[in-house]
């Protein structure tokens, strides 16, 4: 392992001086990208907050259309996938590639499970005719207009979040393929760590989406 470091350490790109500089650049690059994601979702959250202050009752009624237990279950699944992701990155640092592949596969399975539950929820809304822009005749309560706006916010936010999940699963499968090809070792596993940062961020977005879309005035 030592002489490989002198000759040309695994994975070092030509324009970097050493692996530490490359890792710091990669990590900072991902964090700056996550800042753009914070602002991307942030504008959506800001519109949500403005309309919630304008239509408080409608937001409560809309939120009751989503089942909070299903939401809680999805949150638990996603938190578990964060755990397996973190353990995967940890085992990459320890160098046992088999555990890395196992953990990343578990993360993918949990991610797909989350998307499955989300798909079920979407299907449920389609069945109940609660889809703004397509067919919203299933809603007969008060404040039909603002409730429709809440449900459109629900669909927009969860659809964008699900798209990020799909990208995450894609990234993870690439990482599994690269690990299996032996492209990483104890010194060089930056891409794994960066994918981990992305995955944890997608989980954080859901940590906020859950109370915003499922727990609005649940006591009403």
């Amino acid at each position: 392992m030592a002489e490989q470091a002198q000759v040309h350490p695994l994975g070092l790109r030509h324009h970097f001086n050493n692996l530490d500089q490359q890792l710091e650049a990669g990590t900072m690059g991902m964090w700056v990208f996550l800042v753009t994601e914070i602002m991307f979702f942030g504008a959506l959250f800001c519109s949500y907050a403005i309309y919630r202050s304008v239509y408080p009752e409608a937001w409560a009624l809309g939120s009751h259309l989503n089942s909070s237990t299903l939401g809680a279950a999805m949150t638990v699944v996603l938190l578990m996938s964060s755990l397996t992701m973190a353990l995967g990155v940890r085992s990459a640092a320890l160098g046992n590639q088999r555990v890395v592949i196992l953990m990343l596969s578990l993360t993918i399975v949990l991610g797909l499970a989350f998307m499955g539950m989300k798909g079920f929820e979407y299907y449920h809304h389609f069945e109940d005719k609660l889809v703004p822009g397509y067919d919203f005749s299933g809603y007969h309560g008060a404040h039909a207009g603002p409730v429709q706006m809440f449900i459109s916010f629900y669909f927009i936010m969860t659809a964008i979040h699900a798209t990020h999940m799909v990208v995450g699963v894609g990234l993870l499968s690439v990482m599994i393929w690269m690990t299996s090809r032996g492209r990483f070792n104890r010194q060089y596993y930056a891409p794994l760590e960066i994918t981990g940062l992305y995955w944890h961020f997608v989980d954080i977005i859901w940590i906020f989406l859950f109370p915003m879309l499922y727990l609005v005035d649940l006591h009403k």
Binding site: S47, Y51, V54, G133, Y134, G145, M149, S152
Partner: peptide
């Protein structure tokens, strides 16, 4: 999708 995010007739606010 003819939603009402910024459309005042469906409750949206163009100033937002």
């Amino acid at each position: 999708f003819k939603l009402g995010i910024f459309n005042p007739t469906l409750g949206g606010d163009p100033v937002l």
